[in-house]
């Protein structure tokens, strides 16, 4: 019971307008270098290159390592906190993306 209520509370806290923001990885670049999004939005990273990419962030607001994945696959992350997120590919350090997360 308690678990269920907690889950419901989390759901309720999500902004009604939570959306998916897609960013492609092509030619060892992100399709954009800066993104604005809201807490609760989902970032989707799609690999359009014929080799593996990785996604990670070691930012203070949120840190994660989504591992590496081949062409055609995607990885997702839900934005948890407002602030600035620096997202990179560990395999290709020149790939950098700044995400401005707003309330």
């Amino acid at each position: 019971m308690i678990r269920l209520i907690a889950a419901a509370a989390v759901l309720a806290a999500l902004p009604a307008s939570a959306t998916e923001v897609e960013v492609a990885q092509k030619n060892k670049k992100f399709s954009t270098t800066a993104v604005k999004a809201k807490v609760g939005d989902t970032l989707v990273f799609r690999n359009d290159d014929p080799f593996f990419h990785n996604i990670f962030s070691l930012s203070d607001t949120q840190s994660f390592d989504l591992g590496s994945y081949p062409q055609g696959e995607s990885r997702k992350v839900v934005l948890k906190k407002e602030g600035t997120l620096e997202i990179e590919c560990a395999i290709h350090p020149d790939m950098k993306l700044k995400v401005q997360v707003e309330k």
Partner: peptide, 15 residues
Amino acid sequence: VKCHEGFNFTDNGFH
């Protein structure tokens, strides 16, 4: 070429 690409034959990456 997945890793050794372009004029300098490197992707500037780590593997």
